[in-house]
Write a protein that binds this DNA or RNA. Sequence first.
DNA 1: GCTGCCGGGGG
DNA 2: CCCCCGGCAGC
Length: 457
Amino acid sequence: MQKAVAAERLQARTAPEAGSWNGGGLRMIRWLALETDPNTSNTRPPDFTGARKVVAKHIGGDQFKRRAAKPSLPSVRPWFQPRLPSSVQGKEPVQGDAWAPASRPTACKRQVFGDCGKSSEELDMDKVTAAMVLTSLSTSPLVRSPPVRPNEGLSGSWKEGGGVPSSSSSSGYWSWSAPSDQSNPSTPSPPLSADSFKPFRSPAPPPDDGIDEAEAGNLLFDEPIPRKRKNSMKVMFKCLWKNCGKVLSTAAGIQRHIRTIHLGRVGDSDYSDGEEDFYYTEIKLNTDSVADGLSSLAPVSPSQSLASPPTFPIPESSRTETPCAKTDAKLMTPLSRSAPTTLYLVHTDHAYQATPPVTIPGSAKFTPNGSSFSISWQSPPVTFTGIPVSPTHPHPAGTGEQRQHAHTVLSSPPRGTVSLRKPRGEGKKCRKVYGMENRDMWCTACRWKKACQRFID
DNA sequence: GCTGCCGGGGG
DNA sequence: CCCCCGGCAGC
Ligand SMILES: [Zn+2]
């Protein structure tokens, strides 16, 4: 079996240049395949060392060239023997249910959140967003970014947007509006209408924001769970001013409201200079928007429950925020177990720990043509989340703090010309494992400087 | 600099 | 065919 896989893989990876391989390569594959099996290696003539005519050139190229084989047989064996099983095991986890065991603990974490139905990122995002919104209503990452909010703990993505006020309009206002918007403690500035502000108000904003977020998510990944609503909703305009949740049915109205109430513009004097735009957003209201809003926040959303088999009740819901965020990458695994999105997630996971592109196809034919690529690039981005803790991803991206992962990010990856070159095997190969001195123990492929057949990625 | 390995070549 | 190696590219 392994052989088959190995061979296939070899073929697959070389597919792009299949032509060359077809020639002699294929043949070689066949051959190498035989050798792949641990047992077969034993089969090799015991005098394999003797076979080598080469003596040591000098240590170069492959470093030390084939040095006169030492009487390694007996001594080597023990080394080699144990190796095999290990190698097998080594790959087992990756391909198989490596995650199965580990999943349990992580799963718990996930559960805490109570939302297991959807993709973790999305959830996180939702969460985060919701939290933010609650804290200070006024946000709509995608659309109009609210002024300010310089240091945002969580997704710093929009920071940019917020930080940069529209050039037009009086910057003076910005100066003070910023602090006000930021945090509740001391908020002298906005003379908002005290009436409309109260804990109750909060729920209102979240819904729409949440929706936006969610929809964004839809764009990025495919949303498994059907979102209710969508039909019969009316467009309203909501004031995003800190504690003002005023909702008006007309843009003009909301603008006026903002201009007069929040921006302190006197009377009607000047028409909208556009600044108001930043303080309101249009929302689609459903009859029971409130209920919805709550549900999105509460872990017991109906839609979600459907997807998640909540094994554990997990009462407390306290600050699980942070931990969850940090684990987001891993969370996917456990989640996959239960969620319908399994396949997709699994892919991600594997791609993550194994190797990016071409290697993924465990067994399927998979041709290096257009569509398939999506897989390769998809995985990385998926893991993203603007959250600080960017896991172990190769993409250094240089700046650790860089914000702006942006939702747009997704669009870029696919484009491209793919066939870059092979990603290059990840794990250690014979050469590294056994070392030059034990070259005899290498798999044939390695000895021939071909793709290793023993330690396949 | 080391590794992995493609592509090419020699016997 | 079997085997080797130059040389490139990722790390
Ligand atoms: Zn090998």
